[in-house]
């Protein structure tokens, strides 16, 4: 392998003493300029999107946005309070269901399963779920819960979000637990601690910052998910019932429906909602990153 690469490099650069050949110089320049430009382009698009949200969204922000419910068709004014609260509840529900399952499954992979065949299969399946189309998860939960239960519900929405969050948490938990040195575990085991104690008191403690980061990233991931909620939590213009049955209004689906609507106030609310949701998600992602960085420095 190494010699092959060496030959490649050797063949590509015949000894040419003195000045660098022009073609080599230009190829090099072109690569540097193009890759820098591409990076600038990526940053530019992010900036453009944020700018668009600020320009369009700030005008729509008013106290009513946070206090009033979503208006019906043709109704003036209104806010998105029910959608914001509904989104918070659904996201919270999803993360509450996903965290124990994800953390325990990640623990299984890192501490119990390790190199076993089952662990390899679960790792593989988890990676597939991590990138699986979220709309299919919506369909799955529809068939699993909405149809048997006879209607849309916040519970179905929460479960759909949990299914998206679990693989994220499994992955980060396993990765973080693997970074914990084996000698720490051995020290615990040598004191006579049973495996569960070693895991809870030593491995989890050592990997805590990373695991929390994983959960925050999973929250950021599901907070903006729209597709899985279309067929599960649905959406409406009212405050949802306390038992979360019969559809729960939520921000992503509200934005989807309002942005494409012919009413001016609906569109303004959609932009306000888009601004709120994007800033919250970006803030969560940045907090997660800072948390991990602080831990690494320590």
């Amino acid at each position: 392998m190494d010699t092959a690469v060496y030959n490649h490099a050797g063949a590509a650069t015949p000894p040419s003493w003195g000045r660098v050949r022009r073609s080599r110089y230009f190829a090099d320049r072109a690569l540097k300029i193009i890759s820098t430009l591409f990076t600038v382009l990526g940053a530019f698009v992010l900036g453009w999107i944020l700018l668009m949200l600020l320009v369009e969204g700030i005008g729509g922000l008013s106290p009513a946005v946070f206090t009033e419910t979503t208006p019906g068709p043709g109704t003036e004014g209104g806010g998105i309070a029910n959608a914001i609260v509904g989104s918070l509840i659904l996201t919270l529900l999803g993360i509450l269901v996903a965290t124990p399952i994800g953390v325990l499954a990640g623990t299984y992979l890192a501490e119990y399963g390790k190199t076993s065949k089952l662990a390899a299969v679960i790792r593989f399946v988890n990676d597939i779920l991590l990138a699986a189309p979220s709309i299919l998860i919506g369909l799955f939960v529809y068939m699993l819960m909405v149809e048997p239960m006879g209607g849309y519900s916040g519970w179905a929405g929460g479960i759909a979000l949990a299914i998206i969050a679990v693989p994220v948490i499994v992955r980060s938990t396993e990765d973080m637990l693997r970074l914990v040195p084996g000698s720490l575990r051995e020290a615990g085991a040598a004191l006579g601690a049973p495996m569960s104690t070693v895991i809870v008191k030593i491995s989890w403690k050592a990997a805590r910052a990373g695991m929390v980061t994983g959960v925050i990233l999973a929250t950021a991931r599901i907070a903006g998910e729209t597709a899985p909620l279309l067929f599960t939590a649905l959406n409406n213009n009212f405050w949802f019932s306390p038992n979360l049955m019969g559809g729960v209004s939520n921000l992503p689906v509200t934005i989807y429906q309002f942005a494409l609507a012919p009413y001016q106030n609906w569109r303004e609310l959609a932009w306000a909602g888009a601004l709120i949701i994007t800033l919250s998600i970006l803030a969560l992602s940045i907090v997660a990153r800072l948390l991990l960085k602080k831990d690494q420095v320590r």
Binding site: T39, A43, W48, G224, A227, P252, T278, I281, R289
Partner: peptide, 23 residues
């Protein structure tokens, strides 16, 4: 720069849809 590029992945897909359609 890494963070900025990775934040592109954090933007919800519905926002990309709105940017795509309206801008």
């Amino acid at each position: 720069v890494s963070t900025v590029i990775e934040l592109l992945a954090a933007v919800p897909s519905i926002i990309y849809g709105m940017w795509g359609l309206f801008v």
